[in-house]
Write a protein that binds this DNA or RNA. Sequence first.
DNA 1: CTTAGCACTCGAATGCTTGGAGTGCTAAAA
DNA 2: TTTTAGCACTCCAAGCATTCGAGTGCTAAG
Lengths: 345, 345
Amino acid sequence: MIGSLDERGAQVLRHVVDDYIETAEPVGSRTISKKMGQTLSPATIRNIMADLEEMGYLAQPHTSAGRVPTGAGFRYYVDYLLARRRLARPERDQLQRMAGEAGTSADELVRQMSRLLSNLSHQACVVVVSRFSNQPLRSLSMLRAGVDKVLLVSVMQGGWVEHRLIEEETSLTGDDIERINNYLNELAVGLTLSQLRARILQEMKKEKARYDRLMQRALLLSARALDEGSPTEVYVEGRANILEQPEFVEDVQKLKRILRAFEEKSVIVRLLDKALEGETIQVSIGAENPVEGLPDISVVASGYRLGEATAGSIGLIGPVRMDYSHVIPLVQYTARLLGSVFEHR
Amino acid sequence: MIGSLDERGAQVLRHVVDDYIETAEPVGSRTISKKMGQTLSPATIRNIMADLEEMGYLAQPHTSAGRVPTGAGFRYYVDYLLARRRLARPERDQLQRMAGEAGTSADELVRQMSRLLSNLSHQACVVVVSRFSNQPLRSLSMLRAGVDKVLLVSVMQGGWVEHRLIEEETSLTGDDIERINNYLNELAVGLTLSQLRARILQEMKKEKARYDRLMQRALLLSARALDEGSPTEVYVEGRANILEQPEFVEDVQKLKRILRAFEEKSVIVRLLDKALEGETIQVSIGAENPVEGLPDISVVASGYRLGEATAGSIGLIGPVRMDYSHVIPLVQYTARLLGSVFEHR
DNA sequence: CTTAGCACTCGAATGCTTGGAGTGCTAAAA
DNA sequence: TTTTAGCACTCCAAGCATTCGAGTGCTAAG
């Protein structure tokens, strides 16, 4: 059914999609004819549109309505017809200014960038931070926190800080803790957390042999701390933008499904899954996304890097009828920006 | 206009509110007559309802419709007519089980309790944690985090951990840091953060006199760290429950306003403001809440204590037509539970 | 291959009718 | 004096017919 298009067909498709993105209404042949400077009459356009429909790029809600792009239509549009505009100056400036804010902590910064991105795009913005897997440790320390508790604090490349409070019955002296810290840092700095996990297991055998009870305990505690804890953090900003989209407001069921999805970390992670693999932009149109229950949303997302590894991904979630030509460079730019910000932290 | 009610009037009002809470539809005289076991005919009920309307407790959407409780009607209901039921066993059990989960960190626990509460109530649940103002410090430590950065970590009563990453050009040796830590802990443990702030300012003068450059620097860094940072954290769970309420779904504008409000920390803090003062339950009905733009929501909230001071508040946000007799004990119980959980951390 | 012309389709908007739920009032009953 | 049966009245919601117009597909001429 779906084939390639000649120049004319492509132009018509492009205009249909453009117009539909703008108006959210079915587009008629008259409109397209005008948009193309009346080089072709509505009747001709109708013929072309009928062809496009046959090829699966357009659809008719009912006989006497205009045409609406299908998922395939949007896909073709994004792949071949999109005007790859550069990001407008003022938007670049705003993003850069935000990224330059020095005082904020890493996760506060991400949240604010995400909010700004959602404002600029009028879509909901989602960020997944995979704190652990990939980022090398800058320091790992243990410190006392009250009578029978110790706190394990890890600082990652990029300024991410993670901590775990652990119950510990037997008390450690200040000296003990200092020794442990020296030992841990020697062991850990430069490793990613998953590497460290492996290293600790390895080391535990050695230490057992050496009969150093204190170090054994330190390793045990660290291993325990590393086992717990969620490996990813998720931020959602600009949920209310979903309500700006007529297609969602008309159908409360869709709205509910989307809002529920935003409340499930795992769903969001799955939505942005592909983007986590690299720094290139990923566009899922409609049912293309991996989540079963959400065939009416598109996701435009990109991973952002920190050194060698992908540190997380940032994306926009909205209706299939999204302004891709605007949104794609926005996300792309923001992802790069995030990466470079964390590089210098 | 608004006066006190005789027994009969009160009973009718109670039934109208009960029925309206259940159905979200205007309530007619027939319905009430039946509910009261036909001790009074519909005609009599009509007379009573007309009185209640005159007094401002009921209103008619239009001439030939039933009655709907006004804000004042709900207020009277909550103040005088509510059957103060105890919380049902299974709900108590669920909450307790959740509170007993040992492994989770303080903020993860709050988030999960909040989510559970939103599920049990079918409303959106909001928690405000005022981390700083009131809770005494258990420990305050500085540690190195990379080449030119130090991390200041504070552990509060209740298991709350807070950290700040600070740029620091001149490098500190391990010895320096140890001295600083001893000094800081001596200074800080047992104080609340606001007390500590004052203490540091005091101390800075002294140290200046003593010409101890290292301690000076430590104090400077600490002061800087304490000055930044938001004093409160806010969690919202169960937003999607808002969409279960017909009164909100019918009116997208209201929906938008509510969702936008959920995205503004300051708005939420204002909504729960009164509850932060004490451990008693606060009910704001409709326009009673302090936020201008949200006259259609009710807030049922309670502060939770940690030792002497209020550590935060937890509340439910929903339509004026909320099931107060269910929701009030729910919130009350959860707030107490939270307090006692953090007590033992 | 393009396009003017035309018959046709279908949804959205409009107006009309009807049914029913609910009211207020009055007058009789308790 | 209070209650209630009876009744006229109001108004919304739902159903139905009609109209309007945007848009189509097809055909035949350019």
